[in-house]
Simulated assay, not measured.
Amino acid sequence: MKQIQMTKNPPFSLISTKKIIQMNDVSTSYDSKNFALENINISIDRGTNYSIVGQSGSGKSTLLKLMNGMMIPSKGTIRIDYVSPDINNKKFKKMMHSIGYIPQSLGLVKNSTVLENILLGALPRLNKIQSLFNKFPEHEIKEAMKIISQVGLTGKENRKAYMLSGGEKRRVAIARALMQKPTILLADEIVSELDHVTSREIMDLIAEAQKRMNLTAIMVHHDIQLALEYANRVAVIKEGQKILEIGVEGDTIVDFQTGDMNNEEIMEMYADDSKK
């Protein structure tokens, strides 16, 4: 049998995976007794929009915390570009700046200006002295102003965060995350409590940024109709378990993981949400 010999110096500098996030049989618990999530399997393609939908307390936010290393699984494995997300993992620490995370609370500094809040996204690129005194180079300030324009906040860069409307605060939170120059954007209920029009403005903003920067966006929602409108795939979480994964192709809802649900139940779930 003829054997193929590898050259000592192959012409490859790295391996890229299409699946930027992979979760295999993941379970996790806050109290070591009851699982907040159980036997979760999720695979997310690079450059896509993936939504996680479910009721309050279903485990949606916990999924994002697992992806950004704030929690580690009790069982199973998670890989973000071949690296396990764990803040104690040196390899993951080096790539943490590439994951933009927007919590439900948004995490803005209320008494700081729009520009100051957005510049916080550049902190990982500063040296120790610059970081200590928040001295941002001119090119970082120019980049922040460019992003301010992209998110529709031109003219409000010197306004304090507490003076902004709900939609404007979300634009600042998105801009701060984009300032990190991320490859992954995690957003937890970013359009909750917003009206129909403002919700879609924010979702359009993220969709535009995703295409412009080739981002992988993972977003938590309550509204399955809104999720299907923007996401390539939608995972439905119920009581800590992934019960369904669907997407839209043309005028058809495509079922990627049926679980125990039939066609009528899936359509009813979508219809119920569209009535809200």
Rank of each mutant, 00 (worst) to 15 (best):
V236N: 05
E245S: 07
A235W: 00
E245R: 04
V254S: 07
G240A: 09
N263P: 02
E249T: 14
E264R: 11
G247T: 10
K242V: 05
A227G: 08
E265K: 11
I266S: 12
K238I: 14
T258M: 12
N263I: 14
E229S: 12
I243D: 02
I237D: 03
E249M: 15
Q241T: 15
L228C: 08
V248W: 01
L244E: 04
V248E: 05
I266E: 08
T258F: 08
V254R: 06
I253E: 01
I246Y: 03
E245I: 09
I253F: 12
G259E: 01
A235V: 05
M267Y: 13
E229V: 08
D251N: 15
D255N: 15
Y230K: 07
V254Y: 05
A227F: 10
M267G: 12
N232A: 11
A231T: 10
V236H: 08
E239P: 03
E249D: 14
I246W: 02
Q257P: 02
K242S: 03
E245H: 09
E265Y: 12
E249R: 12
D251F: 13
F256R: 01
G247S: 14
I243L: 03
L228K: 03
L228V: 11
G247H: 09
V236W: 08
G240D: 02
T258V: 12
V234P: 01
E245A: 07
Y230Q: 06
M261D: 01
V236C: 13
I237Y: 05
Y230H: 07
D255L: 12
V254A: 06
D251V: 14
I246Q: 00
